[in-house]
Every structure is written in C-alpha cells, then in structure tokens.
Amino acid sequence: MTITQLKYVLAVAEAKNFTKAAQKTFVTQPTLSMQIQKLEEELEIVIFDRSTKPIELTPIGQKIVTQAKSIVNESNRMQDVVDQEKGFIGGEFKIGIIPTVMPTLLPMFLKNFTNKYPKVQLKIEELTTDEIISKLKRGHLDAAIAATPLEQEKIKERVIYYEPFVAYIPEGHKLSEKEKINVDDLDLDDLLLLEDGHCFRDGIINLCKSNAAISEDHFQLQSGSFETLIKLSNEGLGMTLLPYLHTLDIPERQLSKLRYFEEPSPAREVSLIYSTNELKLQIINAMYDVIAGVVRGAIRFQDVKIVSPIK
C-alpha cells in the first residue's frame, strides 16, 4: 500500500470517474486503474462499484476513503513539520476569498505579503461561503477569508477584524437628514440588496429580522455588486448598506451620503478560516499577521455588535 495509491482512490471517489481522476492526478487512466486494482487485491476488497454510472463507492469503500483521507492528511503534515522546523515559509498556498471582501482587502495586503514571503506561490479564488466550506472540507483550499461565525465542524476560525456596516442614503430619502441612524430605522422594503448567495446580504436580512418578521418576498431589486447598488441608490430607488472598507473608495462627492450607525454599530466578523488539521500553519500564521497589521490601520471602530452571516 502506498500514499500514491490512496491519493488515486480519493481522486476517483470525488470525481466518480476514472478518466477525470487520472487527469486531475496527472497520470494516465490505465496507470491509475492498475494502482487502485493492486490496492484492492492487497486488501482483498472492492473499493468501487464499477458497474454504476457514475462510479460509486462500495460500503467498505466508503470506510476506506474515510481512512485514506486521514492517512493522506497525516502524510502531508510530515512535510509541514519539516518546513516549520527549518523555518521555511514557501510552496503553493490555495486561498479562497468571499466576493464582498476580495476587492477591498486583497489590494491592501497582497503586495506586502508577496514581498515579505516571495517563496509562497499564492493561488487565490473568489468563492461564495458555501463553496469555501465545501473546498476546505475536501482539502481543495488551504485557507479562506470569510465572514464568520460559520459554526462548522472541522473548520477553525481566527478573527482578523470587525467591519461595521455603513448606510448609503441618497438625497431626499427619509433618513437623509439624520446624522446617525439606528437599526430600528431600517426597512427591508426600502433596502437595495446584493443578490442571493452573498453572506453580506444574509447578514443584512438577519439584522433587519431581529426587529420584525419580514418576508423575503418583499425584495425585488437586487444586484451582484456594491457599485451597482450605489448607482441605483443615486437614482432614488432606495438606500443600501455597505461594508466599511468599501466606503474608503467612494468618490468625495458622494461621501455626504454615508451615514454611520449609533453605537454599538452592526458589523460583520471577518476571519481567516482553515481546516482543523492545520496543514501549512506557518503560512496561515504569516498571512494572518500581514493582514491584521494592515487592517488595524484602516478600521478603528471598537464598539460593534456582530451580525451573523448564516441564513
């Protein structure tokens, strides 16, 4: 039995197809099939039911895959132990970032991080929270940046910062004369929201529903970007809420339309999250330190109330 054979088993279990698994593991399909067959013969079991389409795991195959994941993870940890002992911070590092954080946070820390740790090959993906959770659990990401708490087993959350919500209120709006607003002022029927799938949208809905039970059927106007929401708001179609870091890029002529909340300000918690197996922890720690150092200078709010991103 070899680690390579176990990796082939995991690839087939995920792809449910020998050809796709071979492509993913960069070997020929006959080589992959032969190695899995050798493993089955050694264990005297059948891991995959090849008569089904897509290929399915046999009952004993499911147990083998669970154990294989543990063994492969532990084998990867061995290289981590060596890297940490040597003080080496490098190699490929796959990180996912949610869409409402990516455009504001990434430019703030990316250059600093790559300059400080040039041996790390970052692979960055913009992903929804659900995609991030799935990829972390399957080992397809080393870490991610997302709104928390997520209450997920086998995922650790390390808070980087708390980002307040800021209201963007057009001229002539019923709240435009207020210097500061309160959560009780919010009306979901009057709020322009991100489209479904964004945790920032879910956080706003949770914030408003804490005051009254409101049906989501009332929402009609939704968009995939904050820039579009701002433009629609300027047309008098309603107000919107923005994450604080996004307001730093708003043109000076529009700054008068921003309104902050009375303290404690509603805010989202943004964390660096990763698997409890703590693979590549030295890179995770390095990234945390760089991001935290940059963000502390941008966000000075202290008295905040965290809004859940969970539906």
Rank of each mutant, 00 (worst) to 15 (best):
G224Y: 06
G224P: 13
G224I: 12
S225C: 03
S225D: 14
S225G: 05
F226W: 05
F226M: 08
E227F: 10
E227P: 03
T228G: 10
L229G: 10
L229F: 10
L229R: 12
I230V: 12
I230Y: 01
K231Q: 09
K231V: 04
L232P: 07
S233R: 00
N234H: 02
N234L: 13
E235C: 05
E235H: 03
E235I: 01
E235N: 04
L237D: 02
L237W: 00
G238E: 02
G238F: 02
M239I: 09
M239C: 07
T240K: 01
T240M: 01
T240F: 00
L241M: 14
L241Q: 15
L241K: 15
P243M: 00
Y244R: 07
Y244M: 10
L245N: 08
H246D: 11
T247Q: 05
L248W: 03
I250F: 04
I250C: 04
I250E: 02
I250D: 02
I250T: 05
P251T: 05
P251M: 04
E252K: 05
E252C: 05
E252G: 06
E252M: 04
R253I: 14
R253T: 13
R253C: 13
Q254R: 03
Q254W: 00
L255V: 08
S256F: 07
S256K: 14
S256G: 07
K257L: 14
R259Q: 05
R259P: 03
R259Y: 01
Y260N: 12
F261R: 09
E262V: 15
E262I: 13
E262H: 07
E263V: 05
P264H: 04
P266F: 11
A267D: 00
A267P: 00
R268H: 09
E269V: 15
E269N: 15
E269H: 04
V270Y: 04
V270N: 15
S271N: 12
S271C: 09
L272W: 05
L272N: 13
I273F: 02
I273Y: 02
Y274N: 06
Y274V: 06
Y274W: 05
Y274D: 02
S275C: 09
S275D: 11
S275N: 14
T276L: 06
T276D: 15
N277L: 12
E278R: 09
E278H: 11
E278Y: 09
L279G: 13
L279F: 07
L279I: 12
L279A: 11
L281S: 09
L281W: 08
Q282N: 14
Q282R: 14
Q282L: 14
I283M: 13
I284E: 08
N285G: 07
A286G: 09
M287Y: 10
M287E: 12
M287L: 15
M287H: 14
M287D: 12
M287R: 14
Y288N: 12
D289Y: 13
D289L: 13
D289N: 14
V290H: 08
V290I: 13
V290M: 06
V290N: 08
